[in-house]
Design a binder for these strands. Structure first.
Lengths: 132, 132
DNA sequence: CCTTGAGCTTCCAGTAACTGGAAGCATTAT
DNA sequence: ATAATGCTTCCAGTTACTGGAAGCTCAAGG
């Protein structure tokens, strides 16, 4: 399929897809006319990139994550180690999103009126996981 | 407190804190010597920014989120509307992180050996929320 | 009191990750 | 046949930092 279709299916703009190819994140086949030609597997990778980028992982981290299943040379222990580090990171992100969620929810429910200047939410902003 | 202390407490580099001031995200008081002077409330805002940025919200989105409790002029209905949009976004992010998590977890447990070239994970990559 | 070093200031340049626009070839629609 | 749409590359601009230079300030040691 052409880049436009891959773009719609993955949620990434064509520009971004070409950029990812330029920096070596994934390379597409070329059709006879020079157009890039994407498989469903490519689309899955693109969709994966769209997601993990939007969740705050850097491009380099995404490259690592992609390599977890893409690199046949990699040692199984390696895969496991990297995946486990990323799992911990994901758990931290989930916890932070949950606390952000609770904060907003509380704001909507409790601070819905005129008592906002000293809204109790403000005290909760530092939340869990605060570095010291 | 000085910017260095605020940096440690918030988890943001001093450079980034100055940058946020430059683009109007938060302005700090100045001490007599010209040094920036941060209150605990400032630190909470910075910590909040550190979090929401690392979770994939853009600076403009963070500005909106910050304004939810900072702007006394804003109508209560406005606050509620914006907060609810952000809540939905957060829920989506949490769901995507959860599916990413499951994917990695599965990779670690099931694809731990030599069967990786056609690892079943690949089929799960598109996951939920795929745009069509 | 003087110096030395760490920390603060501003300013300017560079990087990461896109994003927009121009110029040109390919395909599709009328 | 022609016009619109979509693809190509290339180059420039944007967002959100990040590093480094030059200089001022402050706390500690001699």
């Amino acid at each position: 399929m052409n880049i436009g279709t891959a773009s719609v299916k993955s949620g990434l703009p064509p520009k971004t897809i070409r950029y990812y190819e330029e920096i070596g994140l994934l390379k597409a086949d070329r059709a006879g006319n020079g157009y890039r030609d994407y498989s469903m597997s490519d689309v899955h990778r693109l969709r994966f990139l769209q997601r993990s980028r939007s969740l705050g992982f850097s491009v380099e981290e995404c490259r690592q994550l992609l390599s977890l299943y893409g690199d046949k040379e990699r040692e199984s222990a390696d895969v496991k180690a990297i995946a486990e580090v990323k799992l911990a990171e994901i758990d931290r992100k989930i916890a932070e999103l949950a606390s952000l969620r609770e904060m907003l929810n509380h704001l909507v429910r409790a601070c819905n009126g005129d008592e906002r200047p000293d809204c109790p939410i403000i005290d909760g902003l530092a939340g869990s996981g605060t570095p010291q």
